[in-house]
Design a protein around this nucleic acid. Structure first.
Length: 562
DNA sequence: TTGGACGAG
DNA sequence: ATTTCTCGTCCAA
């Protein structure tokens, strides 16, 4: 059935049945309903279900990688650098029995893999005259390249079949760099794969030339506008107002004056990316030497936003900020904590979505910065698109948000009162009449949590105090019968009085302590490197890194402020 | 570090 | 009856 995912008044996306009926992404709901009255709508304002599926399938795809180069692009795409797997398998091919080949999915386990016919490509092929025909007039280098593509096509089909077993269809592009693979993947959507047989420059250029400028990943709205104006000689009339660009890659690439230097001058300028001209010139030629980035466990930012008809009352704004904060804390809990139980790490994920609730969770990273963005409901008077109306303020994130014991609702309310409200005032100083059309709350500037040493030590406070005794003994002077130490050990121990606020916190716990409450100020401990190892522990309440000798005082600090 | 521009899904 | 809800990278001050 035709299905659309709606966010407020628009279709964020829709399935291919709906697209066949003329429904498009980002279409207004009323418009889509007009051309497709039986369109089924699902609400997609909360992305959580999509994140869960994304995580499941990403885990599955990643389990096939040997080198960990599995770069996510949004919720539903991933680049996989399979150079190593392909090289290994091409080497083990037996030229005398290609039809009965075996694709090894593991170097260690020769049982892991599947049989396949290495005389045929899996899925669609384009980019070369010979298509599916086996060895013809190719030289040795091209012949080898062709076998790499062929093996990769079978690996791709295998992964796509595993995805189908989970109940999802997929498309895939196979080629020699990210841009070519991505464009190839567009060719036979939604349920097939395409190998772009990039055996020589001519094949790559003719593949690229047929695309509209805007279709090339990395060439966005601004770059397209400037390029089109240039190659059409400034004739903005020829630049139709349609989604697809009127100018093709071929037209731009073969334009007499287009060179990396000219593009650099055209696209460059203050505030723009350095080397953009060279980059775009490369993209027009299908050249992209950027690496597939390794999977990262820690996102660089987490943000929550909502749009409104135009908020003007402080009570409404406070309520919305509280909702957003509660969502954000939930997201932080899901994406920035992990199971604290002495889980033997390793073992490829089973694809299950991690439960983020329950007690035994610990932080894997602490965001240090909190950002609030707002936008007015309508564009500025000059009639420009409203996206440019976004403005933001940021400040250090208070550390109490890391307290996994406190009620999430409490923490959200406190975040609003102690941080976001002030930031809102900085953004919107006028006493009233704000007309808020959008609110966004973001945490960023992630600092990885102290790496666990794998000894399986728990986070239990009693355990930490027992450890504290042991450590303190090293700093304790016992009688004077022991003369041989020479005083060296004790004098090298850190001096609590000079090491920071661990003590002060307990002394001044009753006062307002916004400065000490900020996640920012324990950097001197985090940065202490090897010094902190064995001397520092994360507080089980707020997870700040605390010298073990100061844990008692720090715990009293928590008792008193709660 | 901060705030914005641009590009991606 | 234009403008969702994100995420990442890069630049200048």
């Amino acid at each position: 059935m035709p299905l659309g995912i709606k966010q407020k008044g628009i279709l964020a996306t829709c399935n291919y049945v709906a697209r066949a009926r003329g429904v498009r992404k980002l279409m207004q709901i009323f418009e889509a309903k007009k051309i497709c009255p039986d369109l089924v709508l699902a609400d997609g304002e909360d992305l959580s279900p999509f994140r869960d599926v994304s995580k499941e399938l990403y885990t599955l795809v990643r389990s096939h990688s040997w080198n960990g180069k599995t770069e996510r692009l949004g919720l539903d795409e991933v680049f996989l650098d399979v150079t190593d797997i392909v090289a290994y398998n091409v080497e083990l091919l037996n030229p005398n029995s290609l039809a009965e080949s075996f694709l090894y999915l593991s170097k260690d386990d020769p049982e892991s893999g599947f049989a396949y016919d290495a005389t045929l490509f899996a899925g669609c092929v384009e980019g070369y005259e010979d298509d599916n025909l086996p060895t013809t007039v190719l030289g040795p280098t091209q012949s080898h390249l062709r076998m790499q593509f062929l093996v990769a096509s079978h690996l791709a089909r295998h992964i796509r079949l595993r995805i189908e077993e989970r109940g999802y269809t997929s498309a895939c592009g196979i080629s020699t760099n990210k841009i070519l693979a991505k464009l190839a993947g567009n060719r036979n959507k939604p349920r097939n794969q395409t190998t772009l047989l990039a055996l020589d420059d001519a094949a790559v250029l003719s593949f690229m030339d047929a695309h509209g400028l805007r279709q090339v990943p990395g060439i966005g709205a601004r770059t397209t506008r400037m390029l089109e104006a240039y190659v059409t000689g400034g004739d903005l009339d020829l630049v139709t107002r349609s989604m697809e660009s009127a100018v093709t890659v071929g037209q731009a690439r073969t334009h007499p004056d287009v060179s990396p230097q000219v593009l650099e001058r055209l696209l460059g300028g203050p505030g723009t990316e350095k080397g953009l001209g060279h980059k775009v010139w490369g993209l027009l030629h299908g050249v992209d030497d950027t690496d597939v980035k390794p999977a990262t466990d820690i996102p660089t930012q987490i943000s929550i936003e909502d749009t409104y008809k135009g908020l003007n009352e402080m009570v409404e704004i406070l309520a919305e900020l509280r909702k957003l904060s509660a969502s954000l804390l939930r997201r932080m809990h899901i994406d920035l904590t992990e199971d604290a139980s002495p889980h033997p790490p390793g073992g490829d994920g089973d694809g299950s979505v991690e439960e983020a609730s329950g007690p035994g969770r610990k932080w894997i990273a602490h965001p240090k910065t909190l950002r609030l963005s707002t936008a007015p409901k309508w564009s500025a008077s000059d009639g420009k698109p409203y996206m440019f109306g976004r403005a933001s303020r940021s400040q250090p994130l208070p550390a109490f948000v890391f307290n996994l014991q406190a009620e999430p609702g409490q923490r959200a309310a406190r975040l609003v009162e102690e941080a976001l409200l002030g930031m809102f005032a900085r953004l919107n100083p006028a006493p009233r009449g704000w007309n808020i059309g959008m609110l966004n709350v973001c945490v960023t500037n992630m600092h990885p949590a102290g790496t666990e040493d794998g000894s399986g030590r728990g986070r239990d406070i009693a355990v930490m105090f027992r450890r504290q005794e042991g450590v303190l003994r090293e700093f304790t002077v016992y009688g004077d019968d022991d003369d041989d130490g020479g005083g060296g050990d004790a004098s090298e121990a850190p001096d609590p009085a000079e090491q920071g606020d661990g003590e002060e916190n307990s002394d001044r716990a009753g006062e307002e302590q916004h400065e000490e409450d900020v996640a920012d100020d324990d950097d001197m401990w985090e940065d202490a490197g090897d010094f902190s190892d064995g001397i520092m522990e994360h507080c089980p309440l707020c997870d700040r890194l605390i010298p073990i000798f100061a844990l008692g005082a720090h715990d009293r600090f928590h008792q008193e402020i709660s």
